[in-house]
């Protein structure tokens, strides 16, 4: 049989020379990449103007496969690097890809402060409730009672709700969906890209290899079904008790309330106290004066 080439419509955005990728079969990262490209195409943003930043973890490997300028940084610190990258050249659109451990455990402090500043970053937080890269340890979002290699008797920790944390810290756009809702995820990323401010899209994603295996949701299909069975909307959640909400994935737009963006405020200072515009200093390291 002759092999036929059917290049995927998003292949043009990928560093094809780096494929195949390292993600496990059934990992949600493929869906997440798809939704990112879909969102960029739906938005008014130009792919060529996008830079990506990530930390350490499975989802943080995503930017390495994307044909754009990408900064794969240290564990938890993606938002700190992205803060400098964005401030120093606010003309570029910066997407941050991070995981639940990266963003809310080791990088929790940077998450709340980036949200507080309302710096114009679009953060895609791929939440699989576990540390995948290191082989399945509990994360700050692992449900109470769930199993991991460092929670052999079930997790005793109370998990974070990342979207609520980001909202409370001052993010101006926050939405949460699962990889079983790719259309909603794409729309949310698109809205996040277009929000001039700190946007966080939490994507509940499947890790059948570690989370699934440890928690008896063994196949990718089982994980998808588990998402579907437990997904409710913010509106539905409003009338539910805490007990009823245990184990539920509450999806929807947590906040969409623009306010003054951080770099704009810094540039206002420059406008007030300097004759030089901040744009004139972009890439100043390359100027010889």
């Amino acid at each position: 049989m002759q092999k036929q080439e059917h290049p995927h419509k998003f292949m043009k955005y990928l560093r094809s020379e780096r494929l195949p990728h390292i993600f496990c079969p059934g990992c949600g990262n493929g869906i997440v990449m798809n939704t990112i490209f879909n969102a960029i195409e739906m938005s008014d943003k130009d792919f060529d103007n996008i830079s990506m930043v990530s930390g350490i973890g499975c989802s943080s490997r995503i930017p390495g496969y994307v044909k754009c300028d990408s900064l794969h940084t240290t564990h938890g610190r993606a938002l700190a690097f992205a803060t400098g990258l964005k401030i120093a050249n606010s003309q570029q659109d910066v997407i941050v890809v991070t995981g639940d451990g990266d963003a809310t455990s080791i990088g929790g402090n940077h998450l709340i402060h980036a949200a507080r500043r309302n710096i114009d970053l679009t953060v895609i937080c791929v939440n699989n409730d576990i540390y995948g890269m290191t082989g399945g340890q509990i994360s700050p979002t692992s449900p109470e009672g769930s199993y991991a290699t460092t929670a052999p008797y079930g997790s005793t920790d109370k998990p974070f709700n990342i979207s609520e944390v980001a909202k409370a810290a001052g993010a101006t756009y926050v939405a949460k969906y699962t990889t079983a809702q790719p259309v909603q995820v794409s729309m949310a990323i698109k809205d996040g890209l277009q929000n001039k401010g700190f946007s966080l899209i939490e994507v509940i994603s499947a890790c059948p290899t570690y989370y699934g295996r440890k928690n008896k949701i063994k196949t990718p299909t089982d994980m998808m079904n588990w998402f579907k069975q437990n997904t409710i909307t913010l509106q539905q959640a409003e009338n539910m008790s805490d007990e009823e909400l245990v184990g539920k994935i509450v999806t929807g737009v947590y906040i969409n309330k623009p306010r003054k963006e951080f770099v704009e405020s810094l540039d206002d200072l420059i406008d007030k106290y300097s004759d030089i515009k901040s744009e004139e200093n972009i890439k100043k390291a390359y100027m010889s004066d």
């Binding site: 400098g84 964005k86 050249n89 890439k283 390359y286």
Partner: peptide, 9 residues
């Protein structure tokens, strides 16, 4: 480091 890659000293 982020700002350095954006082209600043």
């Amino acid at each position: 480091i982020g700002a350095s890659w954006a082209g600043q000293k």
